[in-house]
Design a protein around this nucleic acid. Sequence first.
DNA 1: ACGATATTATAAAATATTTTGATAACAAAC
DNA 2: GTTTGTTATCAAAATATTTTATAATATCGT
Lengths: 293, 293
Amino acid sequence: MNTKDLAYFQQLIISKNFSKVAEIFDVRQPTITTAIQRLESEFNARLVIRDRVHHSLTITPSGEQLAEHATRILRELDIAHQEIQNLVQNQITLGLPPIIENYYFPKIAAQLKAKRLLRNIVTMEGGSVELRKALLAGKMDMALLGSIEPLSYANLIADEFDRHPFYIYVSKDHPLADRKRVFFSELRHDEFVLFESSFVHNQAFNKLTRRNHFRPDVVFRSNDTHIIMKLVAQNVGITYLTDITDHQDEVVRLELMDEEQPEFITSIVYRTSHILTPAQLQLLTIMHATLKG
Amino acid sequence: MNTKDLAYFQQLIISKNFSKVAEIFDVRQPTITTAIQRLESEFNARLVIRDRVHHSLTITPSGEQLAEHATRILRELDIAHQEIQNLVQNQITLGLPPIIENYYFPKIAAQLKAKRLLRNIVTMEGGSVELRKALLAGKMDMALLGSIEPLSYANLIADEFDRHPFYIYVSKDHPLADRKRVFFSELRHDEFVLFESSFVHNQAFNKLTRRNHFRPDVVFRSNDTHIIMKLVAQNVGITYLTDITDHQDEVVRLELMDEEQPEFITSIVYRTSHILTPAQLQLLTIMHATLKG
DNA sequence: ACGATATTATAAAATATTTTGATAACAAAC
DNA sequence: GTTTGTTATCAAAATATTTTATAATATCGT
């Protein structure tokens, strides 16, 4: 069976119009008719009901079922193309959220260079949710992802390599600056400057506010941790970040004493269908050796 | 791209010989040569290295990667065929382990008949591990499976519909026959007659013996719960079963007082890729209505 | 070392499949 | 009632795949 027929069929389910599908694939309309007929005889089932009366097309249960499998088959094929392309070019496409890139990448870059791996790594930036989707779609070979729970997804293998607690950062002029440790509940009346773009930071923060039953007073959000730290230094507010972000002298880091706090878990993630190349295995080894513990 | 080429390739990976593959598919040898060349140009990568010197074939990393996806694509296609075939014949193929069939099926059969569903249901018997594999391979639409933990598998949806505790059954002549409740640890020196074929029963039983640090004295195992009950009645030994198996007057059922005991969880399971037909939805509804709570 | 055997590749011919172009059939819309 | 939008049919053309015949290589046994 030709996968082209599945692509025509998939588009037909979307467009619900034979002529439009033909146009989209730049073929003539009878091509689509015969392709669908081919599928119908191959699967020995009516797939669509041509409803010329009501100007539209109904999809039979068999059609719905085939559409589901068609999507999976075409996705698999697409991923195969992308993965093999990367293999041929000896490239590792690695997804990295900015915070993780900032902290971890410099630590391993020297080793990667020594092993002549660095120039084969192409990074793609993005948030953790976005990267996970792109990873599943085959847009990259591997990704480093942050999370507050160990990652567990069908079709993905997650290999945890580091964990960091979250801290409270305050200005040295802040009343709490002399303390080493605080409970989160003590921050009920504080003003916060928070990290905007990280899904994980916000998830962790929300968990703590919910658990302590208060609505935090968030005065500003930024996508740049350096700006956040500068605002904290100026005592504009306090913040909640891990220690994987650098901080200046005018800022004091406080440990949280709460029990069962969320942790920032970093994992290297790849598809279950993905076969690791020697270079990719080397990357995994370097990351574990450099970063674990 | 033609999926036939993927099938040729998949077989080549197994046979490692072009001529053998040709023989298996009953085509001439150049067909395989050109099919592999087609794939190599489609994916723009060397897939196998024809090693005529060492009398065998090596598969490149790209080839390994493609083989993985080829398997998935061909499996998906095969499942599509089977599922649509069932749809067309308006059949529900339902996998059932014997114990579950015995207890649950009679309870719902009358309702299924009333809704004119009964004659569309084709059952397949088998153990829970075997049925799970067959389900994933598309051999059936749905299966009822027993387990001691809630089922959680990639690519399967499990819908729990009932839970039953396990009990100890003893002869009315057994010293414990007057008791209503026992701790599992009290059975340390008893002789057991156990159910052989159920993976779930054995899993649960082993959990309890391990937790109580003893090696049970199993004098007999059988695949037939009726035989087990007869042996228990004759005081050959005691047994460990749920109450979903019938028992006679000469046998006394004892509750277990242990904390966090395993339970026999029954779930209806189907593939995530499977689209439920109205008839299948009806079956689900009937099962929930009749069996839940 | 030489012929027999096994293996994969190549090229032209034979087949098979897919796409096209022309047009029919049908019903809705103007 | 003609025009428009839609899908189907069919023969011809265009493509794609398979076969037949044979070449190219290298192993194996003697």
